[in-house]
């Protein structure tokens, strides 16, 4: 069931669009903010509320890479795999992170702490290589600082 809190937030968003479905991405993001990810059940309820079919809303939800249709870890790491970061050595940094966490890109640690995802250019190429953890941006961390940074997310 969508909670009253979620419904209030979604209603507020819908007012900003000419048609109800315009707010569906914000609505999906709202439930994801509360639940971490968007399950089939949640999607169906939300579709009902937005007067869309589950198939329609599902097709929207699978298009956007930051909408999660599978459970993710408590913290999501977005690794920039675009060109400036590649030139500046993201390859080695990523390898270190993968080894450290014991997972590959696209996977979640067994303890549910981190999900590691590739991302397009994070728009901070002058600080390359760049990654984001949740809503925090980190530019050019070396192997030692990245270990300390990761330790800060429990």
């Amino acid at each position: 069931m969508l909670t009253p809190e979620e419904l209030t937030e979604i209603q507020a968003e819908l007012a900003r669009y000419e048609q109800k479905r315009g707010g569906c991405i914000e609505a999906l993001k709202t439930v994801q903010r509360h639940r971490g990810w968007i399950s089939d059940e949640t999607l169906a309820e939300l579709a009902d509320f937005l007067e869309m079919t589950p198939a329609e809303l599902g097709s929207v939800s699978t298009f956007y890479n930051l909408l999660f249709r599978k459970p993710v870890g408590r913290h999501v790491i977005l690794v920039c795999t675009s060109v400036s970061c590649w030139v500046m050595g993201m390859g080695d940094l990523l390898e270190h992170i993968e080894k450290k966490l014991g997972i590959n890109l696209g996977e979640t640690t067994a303890d549910g702490r981190f999900t590691l995802l590739p991302n397009v250019c994070l728009g901070a190429c002058d600080r390359a290589p760049v990654l984001m953890i949740d809503s925090d941006l980190y530019g050019d961390p070396d192997v030692k600082t990245i270990d300390e940074i990761l330790a800060g997310y429990v």
Binding site: S84, V120, G123, D126
Partner: peptide, 11 residues
């Protein structure tokens, strides 16, 4: 939406 790789000006 600035996402063009190498682009960080609108930020």
């Amino acid at each position: 939406d600035e996402m063009e790789p190498g682009t960080f000006k609108d930020r």
